[in-house]
């Protein structure tokens, strides 16, 4: 992306659009909105661009739906190839809407892969799936691990190839919500975080730039070796990890899989294989450092 000089970015974005590659997917993004241009410039400088005349998976546009409201509570609308899946949002949420929209593009159209609502990180060859049960604090933990040197494959979805059962990286900025924005700012002052968007349906939302190391390895799949259900609990001092049975892990992770029902029996057998190849734990934590230490031991044991 840094092949485009910063001052030419808004022009190209408003014109034929910018084709960004994130793992196997190419998205053509078009928008005249300054917030989108600023967000991309801040969070996507290291991403590879794709040939605009080549094949693009998703053609995405963000625009103000009714020009009459340009000054009175202006709005932003997301469209994919002319299809509008969401209601318009306040203009201040333009950049988060781009990220949510790109997630929707994948989870609604890419049923070639098994898509689990989870974060995925890797170290020393150990791929770890962190299923995102609501309110679990998965993104905070995933961001912290990434900033401590773990490789990020994705913060929102595990993408599993149904034949090889490999974890396919779809590296994108990490979404942080409400308190975890401050937590990560204090955790790593050098972290690059987009300006927060206020009172979205999920409260305050901001996105964290992914270190170059993870982006450079975005074409390198990983193998799952652990499934950890994180749970932030203020009273979990020290952090407590409890093993979870394979059967219950299968059902819990299936419930978090976007296209489990759609892929049917293939998803049942694929998840079973992933569960059987992984150590499965619940991890309750209050202190990020304790959680990270536990993960380091987990990945340390991997190559021990």
């Amino acid at each position: 992306m840094n092949a485009i000089e910063p001052d030419r970015l808004p022009g190209q974005l408003a014109g034929s659009g910018i084709c960004i590659r994130t793992g196997p997917f190419v998205s053509r993004i078009q928008s005249r909105l300054s917030a989108v241009a600023a967000g991309l410039a801040l969070l996507y400088p290291d991403y590879p661009l794709a040939d605009p005349d080549g094949f693009t998976d998703f053609q995405v546009r963000l625009y103000t739906p009714n020009p009459l409201r340009r000054w009175w509570r202006p709005q932003v609308q997301f469209a994919m190839d002319g299809r509008i899946p969401f209601k318009p949002l306040p203009l201040s949420q333009a950049y988060p809407l781009l990220e949510w929209g790109l997630n929707w593009c994948i989870t609604s159209h890419m049923h070639h892969y098994l898509l689990i609502h989870s974060a995925v990180v890797e170290r020393n060859g150990l791929g770890v799936i962190l299923p995102g049960e609501p309110g679990a604090g998965k993104s905070t933990l995933c961001a912290a691990l990434m900033l401590r040197g773990w490789r990020l494959l994705s913060d929102e979805m595990a993408v599993i190839d149904l034949d090889s059962l490999e974890l396919i990286p779809v590296v994108r900025p990490v979404s942080l919500k409400n308190a975890s924005i401050e937590v990560i700012r204090r955790f790593a002052s050098e972290a690059v975080i987009s300006p927060p968007a206020l009172d979205t349906l999920k409260g305050t939302v901001a996105h964290l730039r992914v270190p170059r190391a993870s982006i450079e390895r975005m074409d390198e799949p990983a193998r799952a070796g652990a499934i950890v259900f994180p749970r932030y609990r203020s009273d979990a001092v020290p952090a407590q990890a409890a093993p979870e049975t394979p059967g219950r892990t299968l059902l819990r992770i299936a419930q978090n899989t976007f296209n489990y029902s759609l892929l049917g029996e293939r998803a049942f057998h694929a998840l079973t294989a992933v569960v059987q190849a992984s150590r499965c734990h619940d991890l309750a934590y209050a202190e990020l450092e304790e959680a990270i230490a536990w993960f380091d031991r987990l990945s340390g044991e991997a190559d021990g």
């Binding site: 899946p85 929707w104 059902l251 819990r252 299936a254 759609l262």
Partner: peptide
């Protein structure tokens, strides 16, 4: 039966509100 996961609607009415991830209500919400 310890745990059950009933198949989600693939066909028919658009009942699922994709709010949990996309932070927004789908247009036919």
């Amino acid at each position: 039966v310890l745990l059950s996961l009933t198949s989600r609607p693939v066909l028919g009415a658009e009942c699922t509100i994709s709010g949990f991830m996309s932070g927004n209500v789908s247009d036919h919400g």
